[in-house]
Amino acid sequence: MTLILALILDAIFGEPRWLWSRLPHPAVLMGRAISRLDTTLNTGRGRRAKGIIALALLIALALAIAALIAAIPLGPLPELIVAAILLAQRSLVDHVRAVADGLRRSTADGRRAVAMIVSRDTAQMNDTAVARSAIESAAENLSDGVIAPAFWFALAGLPGLLIYKITNTADSMIGYRTPRHADFGWAAARFDDLLNLIPARLTALILALTTGQMRHWAAIRADAKRHKSPNAGWPEAAMARALDIALAGPRSYEGQTTPFPYVNPTGRHSLSADDIDGAIKLLWRSWASALALLICIAFV
């Protein structure tokens, strides 16, 4: 029941600017801890071993915080509040909608909005590239920001949720194959892959079930394997099939274009703000389906 209420609270309130402009968001605090470990441990030799130690320290921190919250004598309320804060349905929808709104004003506004949610180069994007990037982010973050946190909370309570979130944050900060982080971020990236193994496929299943695409499940599975990520390809492939569009494909990072293959390559390649709107509808449909499933489980 706590998770059900947390999903509803997050969907209603999201991340109130009046609150997080005055207090540091828990994700920001996690980021500071990760940055401190990166600064102090990511030096010299044995960086992979040091990265494993850093991940172990982050997990220990998550468990300690969970224990402190559980000790607050207010029943399930503290866990409910923390879970609602760490779920990201409303925030995801708001950020993706901002790209559609910006793109309707101008390509430049669309680029500025999408730069807030993707790490690739955006300066030379056309309207299709902006829309595609926003939809890919919507699909991937439906898994990372909603389904996966809910899955781990349902499975392992607040400790599971906090371990997932701090690992996912670490992966987003140090889990890159760059000269600085290829070794130090290896443990965070691999553990994040493991934690997302089931949720990513569950997200794809929810998208397929709610959009009548189960008959294309074999194609979704095949398309997911075309993606550079072992997990992100699943929700993107399901989203691409549901909207009948091509996702992924070539993109530029730090001035270098990488020729990634398309997911659902036979889908429509010319995209617009209307396609982003379609993706937002699927975000809410998936959220509602997950909520309904949890309610059924709770009553059973």
Rank of each mutant, 00 (worst) to 15 (best):
D121S: 09
A273D: 11
M30R: 11
S272A: 08
H227K: 05
N264V: 04
P179S: 02
N168T: 04
L3S: 07
L197D: 12
G51K: 03
T210G: 11
G75T: 04
G160A: 07
A182G: 11
P16Q: 03
A84I: 02
R180D: 15
L92S: 01
W186M: 10
G212Q: 03
L37I: 09
A115E: 11
T178S: 05
R221G: 13
L291W: 03
P24C: 06
D183W: 13
S106P: 09
L23Y: 04
L161Y: 02
S137I: 05
A113H: 00
S172A: 12
T128F: 02
W18L: 09
A64C: 05
R17F: 10
L80K: 13
L80N: 09
R241V: 06
I166H: 00
P16W: 10
L202W: 01
I72T: 12
R22E: 13
G185P: 06
A123G: 11
W186G: 09
A218G: 12
G185K: 01
I245V: 13
R48N: 12
I117T: 08
R201T: 04
R104F: 15
G212T: 03
P179Y: 15
G145V: 12
L77F: 11
R190L: 15
L86C: 01
D10V: 10
A108C: 08
R120V: 11
S252R: 15
M173A: 08
P159V: 00
A64P: 02
R241S: 04
A33F: 15
A64G: 03
Y262L: 13
A49T: 08
D193L: 12
V118M: 06
P26K: 04
S272F: 13
D193C: 11
R47W: 00
R104H: 14
Y176V: 00
I4M: 04
S270Y: 09
Y176K: 02
R177C: 05
F151N: 03
L92K: 04
L103E: 01
E15L: 11
W287F: 14
L7V: 07
D192C: 10
